[in-house]
């Protein structure tokens, strides 16, 4: 790691200005669990870290039944899974944040950082997708909002432009009868990167009919995918072996993975289906 500059931003506007001045080699610093490693290993050329975690709105959790949940992008994982509202209403966020890294990493790592690192295997993103997160971005031209499923564009890349960074994530309040679940598959039981991961949110009517669903699968394509065919296979009828199998098959069909040291194409296509099936069943249990 080379000598780098560090600037602590006190406001969103100051951070935007610092990032804009810093150009290509300036990066926002939240928990730093990805960017510091990338700088040290020289896989990313960084000359300026703009520390955004001292901006109050970047570390915050707010909920109301009307406006839903808003979390600051730099809020560390442990604060999210330690929050009683999130545990009660958004357990899929607990699924994700409690298995990213280990306990020490969870003390610093954030969902905003996980999103901006834009790894195809990110363990936070499928949950954000099925929970319909909206990403609030600040930049030189003010603020804009992007649906999370449109945020990542390719491995390590996303829609952020020069001087832009993610400020907040917004989630609608969960509707009656909703349940969501995130699962990942790793060869070990801890401290690993997903071979494949998946999240599902379903909404069940009183008679058990699936009235709404979202399915997202990760590590099986250049970006985490929103698989609408999988949701379509579920909506409009009660859950059955047939609809679940059809949804799983839709996820496998949507998968476009690579073979690497973490898994093979065939293994990942297969796991996309297995994890889709499991998350549907467990999301439905939470909905009931």
């Amino acid at each position: 790691m080379q000598a780098v500059k560090y600037a602590r931003a006190g406001s969103v506007e100051e951070a935007v200005s610092l990032l804009q001045d810093g150009g290509d080699t300036a990066r926002p610093l939240a928990g730093g669990t990805d960017v510091i490693v990338q700088a040290r290993e020289r896989t990313r050329d960084i000359n300026l870290f703009v520390d955004i975690k001292h901006i109050p709105e970047l570390i915050s959790i707010e909920y109301s039944a009307d406006s839903g949940l808003t979390i600051g992008a730099a809020t560390p994982c442990y604060q999210l899974y330690g929050d009683s509202t999130i545990s009660e209403l958004y357990p899929a966020l607990v699924d994700s944040t409690s298995l990213i890294g280990g306990t020490a990493i969870q003390g610093r790592a954030s969902l905003g950082g996980n999103l901006c690192n834009s790894s195809p295997a990110a363990d936070g993103i499928p949950s954000l997708i099925v929970l319909e997160a909206q990403v609030e971005i600040a930049g030189p031209n003010g603020r804009r909002t992007v649906a999370v499923e449109d945020f990542c564009t390719s491995p390590g890349r996303n829609v952020l432009g020069d001087g832009e960074f993610v400020v907040k994530l917004h989630f609608p309040a969960p509707a009656e009868g909703s349940g969501a679940r995130f699962l990942r598959f790793i060869p070990r039981n801890e401290m690993d990167i997903a071979v494949a991961n998946a999240a599902t949110q379903v909404r069940l009517a009183a008679d058990g009919t699936v009235t709404w669903a979202r399915v997202s699968v990760g590590a099986i394509a250049p970006t985490p995918l929103l698989v609408s065919d999988a949701a379509d296979a579920l909506v409009g009828q009660p859950l059955s072996e047939e609809t679940i199998a059809a949804a799983a098959a839709a996820s496998s069909a949507a998968a476009n993975p690579i073979t690497d040291m973490r898994g093979s194409i065939r293994q990942r296509v297969h796991l996309a289906g297995v994890l889709t099936e499991r998350t549907i069943r467990q999301a439905a249990e939470r909905a009931a």
Partner: peptide, 16 residues
Amino acid sequence: LKNASLLDYRMPTALD
């Protein structure tokens, strides 16, 4: 060698 790290060279952890 594509897995020259202890992330991708998978030794068992205490949880395994």
